[in-house]
Structures are given as C-alpha cells and as structure tokens.
C-alpha cells in the first residue's frame, strides 16, 4: 500500500536554520531518507517552505478566491512529506516514528486512495 506521511510541527519548534543542531537534524533526515530508499519504500518526499509563503485557493460559484496563508491557522503546520510504499499500516507507523520531527511535532499517516480503474 502507499502511504503519505505528513510531517507537522510548530514552525518555531525544533532546530532552526543557523542553529548548530540544524545541520545535525538534516543529517538525521538524510539517514532516514537513505533507509527508506534502500528498503525500496521511497516514492517521493520533500520539505516545504514556511506557511508564510502559502497561498490558499477556493473556487466558489465559479469564482476563484485567493487567500494569503495556509487554509487553517493552526500552530502546527505541514512542513514536509514522504510518500512511501509499505506492506501495511504497522510498517508505515514504524517509519513515521523514525522521522526526526516526530520527536517534537507529529506525523499524520494517510493511505493513498486506490481509484477504481
């Protein structure tokens, strides 16, 4: 099955660029990425820019409404994701627990829908 692991955390939580431990965290992320790649589970994944760069689009009655910012103003924001191919939910949970940001944020797991062909 394919799972999207969405990494949420408060943007001011955890190591920030310029901090000493920021490079260390990048190293931990690289280690995790290597692990899922070697296991053949990696389908994709990226880090996202901060929510200050986000734009939200809604179309209502054919009209586009553009708003500045993320759709929900919450403290914890989506910071990045991995798209993984896992045997089952248990394997996805095991990988999620290894994502460095899980230590101060959280990781939401969503199965990818299999569309009827």
């Amino acid at each position: 099955m394919q799972y999207l692991l969405m990494i949420y955390s408060a943007e001011d939580a955890g190591p920030q660029p310029g901090d000493d431990d920021f490079m260390q965290m990048l190293g931990e992320y690289q280690k995790f990425t290597d692990e899922v790649e070697q296991a053949g589970a990696m389908l994709g994944g990226e880090a996202l820019e901060a929510t200050t760069t986000a734009t939200t689009v809604r179309v209502r009655n054919g009209q586009s409404h553009i708003t500045d910012g993320p759709f929900a103003e919450t403290k914890e924001a989506l910071g990045g994701y991995y798209l993984l191919d896992c045997k089952d939910l248990d394997e996805a949970i095991r990988y999620a627990a290894k994502i460095p940001s899980a230590a101060y944020g959280c990781v939401e797991i969503r199965p990818i829908m299999v569309l009827p062909s």
Partner: peptide, 8 residues
C-alpha cells in the same frame, strides 16, 4: 478503517 488504512 481497518481495510482502507491497511491495518495488518
């Protein structure tokens, strides 16, 4: 949920 989320 068991079926769709792949609970083993």
């Amino acid at each position: 949920k068991i079926k769709l989320s792949g609970i083993p």
